[in-house]
Design a protein around this nucleic acid. Sequence first.
DNA 1: GCATTTTCGGTAATCGTTTCCCCACCTTGG
DNA 2: CCAAGGTGGGGAAACGATTACCGAAAATGC
Lengths: 381, 381
Amino acid sequence: MASPVSATRNNAADRRRPGTVSIREVAQRAGVSIATVSRTVNRIPSVNPDLAKRVWQAIDEVGYLPNTQARALVSGRSRMLGLIVSEITNPFFPELVQEFENLAVAQGYEVFIGSTNYDPARTESLIRRMLQRSVDGVAIMTFGIEEELVQKLVEREFPLVFVDAGPDLPNIRVLKVDYGEGIRQGVQHLAALGHRSIAFITGPLYMRSAVARRDAFVKSMAEIGLTAPAEHIVEGTHTMEGGIASMEKMLALGELPTAVMCSNDMTAIGVLHALYRTTHKVPEEISVVGFDDIHLAQFALPPLTTVQMSCKHLAAAAVEGLRAGIEPAHPRAASKQWRIPTRLVVRQSTAFPRGTLPALMQNASSGRRESSPRSASELRP
Amino acid sequence: MASPVSATRNNAADRRRPGTVSIREVAQRAGVSIATVSRTVNRIPSVNPDLAKRVWQAIDEVGYLPNTQARALVSGRSRMLGLIVSEITNPFFPELVQEFENLAVAQGYEVFIGSTNYDPARTESLIRRMLQRSVDGVAIMTFGIEEELVQKLVEREFPLVFVDAGPDLPNIRVLKVDYGEGIRQGVQHLAALGHRSIAFITGPLYMRSAVARRDAFVKSMAEIGLTAPAEHIVEGTHTMEGGIASMEKMLALGELPTAVMCSNDMTAIGVLHALYRTTHKVPEEISVVGFDDIHLAQFALPPLTTVQMSCKHLAAAAVEGLRAGIEPAHPRAASKQWRIPTRLVVRQSTAFPRGTLPALMQNASSGRRESSPRSASELRP
DNA sequence: GCATTTTCGGTAATCGTTTCCCCACCTTGG
DNA sequence: CCAAGGTGGGGAAACGATTACCGAAAATGC
């Protein structure tokens, strides 16, 4: 009679981490059943306020934290959101991740981050891992992903958020970035300054967004009667290294443009670097425009004129899009598209092209400000 | 008799995500019990090879993925590692996160990332969230955290990894970064070039690592008979903004140093920015040295001479340290400390101080290489 | 050829929750 | 004062895995 029935087995609870307290301890201390504790924690209104108070006190005393795994197991909701980015080391993404995380956590979700590094095998394993951890939805922010890899998610009717484009299915929402507007502003800004020879360094062209940005550039140029020759549209990689390589290629070709637009800011920073190495002055000899407006852009030398794609907007739309797919009662549950605006931010990497009004631009004293006098209106007589 | 017993209840399985298959389906299809499936999946050698093959085939056919939540619930191990950083938007950390994640995933772990943003409330909630998700261990890579917040983790005997310093307890491992060596190399490099007036911009001094770096600087200076006046040791924030502010403060004071060392690369990039704005040339007028050697450092203008703290090393040590605490059979289970080396990487932000050998330094053509001829030996007659 | 050992797979308990079902009890109406 | 109605709370069955235990069949010894 010394050992009660449960002691004969090697109880699984022995494996439990010390200090972990379960709903049972709370129930015991409060003198109620575990059902009541659960109801209290989940704020079911039917539980008697006095009892509830006792339960909360017990929870406090024993330091109870509900076990999320058990919760997820029974409810079928893990309250985790997957967030797939292409490279966490590209500064654009940490900013996005940060915003996304803040919003998700505020809504009671946890974030499962993964970067694909443009590697299909890695992406595949990432998706499998997310499925195993049974995330409630996935935001695919890589700006271009192999369709077939996502198939698994689509099959399981996972709420999904894509950027730019995605299949038209009930659980899928798409964030439409307005590439056109921002890039048009950039092109017109340069044209207004007097530039006629404007080059463009694209991202990797298997990415839908890279193509979209390039097309927006070509279209904006055409609108004002300009065309860039083929050798002035160079494919890059959306990295600083790519920016350097692309710019060096262009430099080697001779016949330099007077301005270079880039598909993202990292590329632009690479371009600045390449021009520094070859002692070309920016913006005096060549103007440079980026895209994204990452935090770093304002600290580039010179501070980078760039097209802003609001990270906050993007993150907010992603989280809301996922919630809309997960929570049936969400106000925008029916929306399928979410529009992300862009706009030009003028800093100091753009100026009049060499030869026009040189005296004005040469005095590079301190105190240059974002609202510098190099605006389109000044150019017009 | 129409409805069997289980159909009378509103079965919880109804809530299951479509496409999800459980171990039961596999067992049924393979014609074995769920125990056999489990044993097969976990590669328990006692299961008959023929049976195992049948089971694997069934797994493949139905597309079974073991539910991690259920696994974690029964085993008490979630196979998740917590990773706490201070700011994911500081480029140093994504690099660390990336490495950490690669290693963790290779070992079958998932990573739960969180950034404190230097906010104790946020840190508190982060730790609570990690506890709820029952991570197996936590690496605290913030280089300085409030002791009391960690208390909760310590109490629960969580395997922990700290950077720089941590309590001496059984489950805790510390990564000791050798700040001294790298900073000494930096100071001696500058001194060898001829600098005597070297300033230092620290990190926020409530961070242990910031203090350690400053102390290493002061010590290295003293070793070669130099002292920096108080106004040449300025507190920064480990951000670009902080670097700008600190440098501007120093500029306002007059009595400029000929070289500035910074507690991290972001600060150094801020310093470069401030000097650009005030048209001071780097390195001709002022030399700048960073710390960390983030990827961006080589793309700064000019490319930044900096003290490298190997991210790969740090991440590898963190993962191994955690595994050592979690898995009793780990080869280094007994180790308490892990040493992280540092070393100077010379690029182009350092040169002879103004006035000494100016002609040699002025020809800033391309082709400057890391192994430039500005070494100590050249200086000595 | 029978008894003993070994192998191998199935049954069931368990992890920590949520939630369905039902039984008390209390309130209220007649 | 008793029956009907409503309501709060407890018991127990899931969720999907792991694993201790046990029993049946196969292998082996004498």
